[in-house]
Design a protein around this nucleic acid. Structure first.
Lengths: 152, 152
DNA sequence: CTTGAAAGGAGATATAA
DNA sequence: TTATATCTCCTTTCAAG
């Protein structure tokens, strides 16, 4: 679909805060309520906007300990890969898992309460998955930048 | 604040889809509209829910090329660190940047259109920041799991 | 916490410009 | 395509149990 400058600005605003009223977006864009209403519906319909979600403060729910875990599989036979990926889905501590190029096969983002919870997660959940070659954990010291918005 | 089982379930639902009506959440929890309304307001007031946002489909806006870039600084003197972190904020391609322990100092998540755009980003933006020691890019081959929700 | 009710406002629709 | 008006429904608040 064709995205013009107004769409771009609207999407940017919706990615920052989706709970404003249509009138507020309309004022920001200098368009009428109806025009903005139709644009939002079109962005939703065409799938540019995939969903609306609440974002939770990790500290407030005791999940302030974040870790990037780099995982390499022992052998890359299809069966092992599929099994690993299926097991990862089930682990609630894993917020993200990407298959990547480079030194490791997978990069995982994990949120737990503290180092002890992470140790427990590693021992009884992650490394319990068969065919994992090795793992390398990078603990998050500080969040320099953290947005769910994609700049377009 | 004290979070009970109902809060937990409600937060989970709101993290999956924040655009349902209060009645829908109420039905899912087996509570009245008023009770759910008050719980949501309390979660917002106390900061458990930090904000509501629209999520955008990267493919639909030509930002389907995702990269994890591991960055090491040349020297870790405070001035360099602060300067690097300030410059990173300005780069629209960088969605996330974490200061981490381990082999690298920082892990960045970057969204661009394609490999050519990434090359351009590296050459004229990222490595233009002084005091970067070295970088190591891991290209995302597939998203095994990707959620903004934190399981509580 | 529940039910019920009332008010205001925003979303959704239709019609006109 | 944009603005205006209308209608409907949801949010929000309150009272009483």
């Amino acid at each position: 679909m064709a995205i013009d400058a107004n769409d771009r600005q609207l999407v940017q605003l919706l990615q920052e805060d989706s709970k404003k009223t249509i009138k507020q977006y309309a004022d920001a864009l200098g368009l009428s309520n109806t025009a903005v209403y139709e644009r939002i519906k079109r962005l939703e319909r065409t799938g540019v906007i995939s969903k609306y979600v609440a974002l939770v403060d990790k500290k407030m729910v005791n999940r302030q300990f974040s870790v990037f875990c780099h995982v390499r599989l022992a052998q890359h036979i299809k069966e092992n890969v599929l099994h690993f990926e299926r097991e990862i889905q089930k682990l609630e501590e894993v917020a993200e898992c990407f298959h990547t190029s480079g030194d490791h096969d997978y990069i995982l983002k994990i949120h737990v309460e503290d180092m002890e919870a992470y140790r427990e997660f590693m021992v009884s959940k992650l490394t319990a998955i068969p065919h994992i070659g090795n793992t390398q954990s990078s603990f998050v010291i500080s969040e320099v930048k953290h947005t769910t918005a994609i700049h377009i």
